[in-house]
Each structure stands twice: as structure tokens, then as C-alpha cells.
Design a binder for these strands. Structure first.
Lengths: 172, 172
DNA sequence: ACTGCATATGTGTATATACACTCTTTAAGT
DNA sequence: ACTTAAAGAGTGTATATACACATATGCAGT
């Protein structure tokens, strides 16, 4: 097909000898393999796949499950902004994530009576049902993951992640 | 504007008394606040913003920087699949990420001489230059983040993240 | 009531992410 | 050589993510 038109080279691909800049940069770049951000993102990518698979039978991914669980966990419907803050998610990202959940009939977005600006988030009956049905599946992966990583190390890891999140929020 | 048509309620938003199912589910949902996947994803979201801001002057985000650094760190150009594996990223995701870097003239995708199926990834001269220029900025955020989290705890956290990633790859 | 600022939210746009599926090329077996 | 399975890569589609910007509402001071 060759749509992307990779460079066609001759019989043997020739790699020009790296320049001095390239050599020094290559050494420095290896240092970046220790990047905190990269490591966290990579882990997030990998672990998300397990959770997504586990929740798939319920029509949810791990992100949607987290949102449902948070909304369901708070006694009184919280505002969109506050919810986004707890999720550590940009407000506008939550807006878009909610659109799907609303469309699926799992959540409802209510206008606050006191302040017409604020939207309060709640689960529908269907949302409660789906969340209830998904919880055992979540407990399954969570248990497997815990077992695989060694359950005793989770409290520590959890605290470090919290710390890291808070630190970066400060540092900007 | 009111495009999204939130439910308009009366004077006071009424929240119907939660059903028995909802009550039980709410308790269970609070348990999900301890979700490993959620915590890792949340941290990834938060920390990414710092790194993105730091790298922005170079026209890179943290993901693009990681890709450039990895390609630059390996002596011989590696295949797309192998690179994706090291990044802990779906192969097709890397394909799309590379499209932007290719278009920006930072990377080049070469056809392997021995196997016409295989694409090998390399940096262009411009790619080397941008990477070299971005590295100090990266060292900046990395240092700040390290300092904020307590540098001594990073090796441990790093190992736990690696372990977690490997565990989930196994578990499925 | 009016003005101006702060707050809560939504939109446009660009990038990241992965699954299901398809295409191409290689290798293995006959 | 022919057939077929396996490996490498790309595309269609859906979702996640955040920044810059726009809009709507509330509130305080006049």
C-alpha cells in the first residue's frame, strides 16, 4: 500500500556516523530513560489495559468506572469542578467524559438550585445498576493486580503517588 | 447558550432518597477510591502537565520527548514494534505519534534492508538538535519533581512502577 | 440598576491511546 | 514452486486529555 511513503533506500540501509552533537546527546538521552513522568505514564498505559479488559463486559472502561464510582461514593451530588479536582482531571476533560456517560444514561447533570452556573453530578438508576454490576469485576482485577505486585507494597506506592501528584500540583 | 440542555429542575433540586441498592453500592464505591489503576492514571495526568509546560518552549510534549529520547538513546535504529514495546505503548499508538514527529522533521522512518516489513526509527539532524536543546529543560522539571517528592524515594517508586507494569502485562 | 470582576461551565482544536481489522512480506512445510 | 501461517505495519473508529478561548452567572461596590 505504502501510503506513508517511508524513505526508500538502497540495497543496504546506511546510517551515517553520528555527529559529535549526536554522540553527546545520545548519552544524555539515556539519562532520560529515568524520566519520572515517562515511567508513570508507561505504567498507566499498561495497567489500564488490564482494567479495561476486566470492565469491558459492563460496557465501561477504567476511566468511566472511576467517574461512576466517585459520583456514587459522594452522598450529595458534587459540582463538576470539584469532581474534576478529585479526579485530578482537567475540568473540560471531565465535561467530555460525562457527555458519554450522560448519553449512555448512566449519569445525569443537574443545575444547582442556588447557583445556576454550577452543575451537580448524580447517577441515574441505570448508573447505579451498572456500577453495582461492575464492582465485582473491578474487585477481581484489583485483587489480581494487588496479588501480582505484592499487596504489602501498595499502601506505600499509593502514598508516593499521592505525594507525587500533590508535589507536581504545587511545583506547577 | 445551554447547548447541552441540563435537566431543568424546580426551585430546589430534589435528590430522591437513595434506594437500598444505591446505599450498598455507594459504600462499595468508596472502596474503589483505592483503585490502583485510577491512582496511577491520576498521577500520570497531574505530572504530565508539569513536564508538558517545561518542554513547551521546544515544541514538544512529554510524550514526544520520551520518544525522541528513546530513539536517540539506542545506538542502532530499532524497529517500530520493538520501540513500542519499550515505551509500553500500543504499536499503532506509536505509529500515530511518529506521524507528527516525522511531519515536524524530527524523526525519519527507514525501511529495513533485510526485511521490507520492518520500519526502523531514527532521528534527523533537526531531531538531534531539538532533543539536545530540550534536555536541559527536562533536567529542570525532573530535578524539581525529584526535589518535591524527596529524591531518596524515587528508586523505590521506580522499581514498584516497573514491577506493576510487568505484573499487569503478565496477568493480562 | 450599573459596572466590573470572579466563578462555573462549554467549545474549538490538537494530541494520545488502543482495539479490531486489513494489507504486505516473510518463513515454513509440502 | 505452492500453500499457508506468522510477523510487521497501517487504517477506521472511539475515547481520553488539556489548553486557549468564549459564554453565562453571581457578587460587590457604586
Amino acid at each position: 500500500m505504502q501510503n506513508s511513503k517511508p524513505l526508500k533506500l538502497g540495497k543496504q540501509v546506511k546510517f551515517s556516523k553520528p555527529s559529535k552533537l549526536a554522540e553527546e546527546t545520545a548519552n544524555a538521552a539515556r539519562e532520560a530513560g529515568n524520566c519520572i513522568c515517562f515511567k508513570v505514564r508507561k505504567t498507566a498505559r499498561l495497567i489500564s489495559q488490564s482494567y479495561d479488559r476486566a470492565l469491558k463486559p459492563h460496557g465501561l472502561n477504567t476511566n468511566q468506572f472511576s467517574i461512576l464510582a466517585l459520583i456514587g461514593a459522594t452522598p450529595e451530588p458534587q459540582s463538576l469542578t470539584d469532581t474534576a479536582r478529585v479526579l485530578g482531571m482537567d475540568r473540560t476533560t471531565l465535561t467530555r467524559n460525562l457527555r458519554l456517560l450522560d448519553k449512555a444514561g448512566l449519569t445525569k447533570t443537574l443545575v444547582d438550585a442556588q447557583d445556576a452556573r454550577t452543575r451537580r453530578l448524580a447517577l441515574t438508576d441505570k448508573g447505579w445498576a451498572v456500577l453495582a454490576a461492575a464492582l465485582p469485576s473491578w474487585r477481581g482485577v484489583q485483587g489480581q493486580t494487588l496479588a501480582a505486585m505484592g499487596p504489602e507494597s501498595w499502601p506505600d506506592l499509593r502514598q508516593q503517588l499521592d505525594h507525587l501528584g500533590r508535589a507536581t500540583t504545587m511545583t506547577g
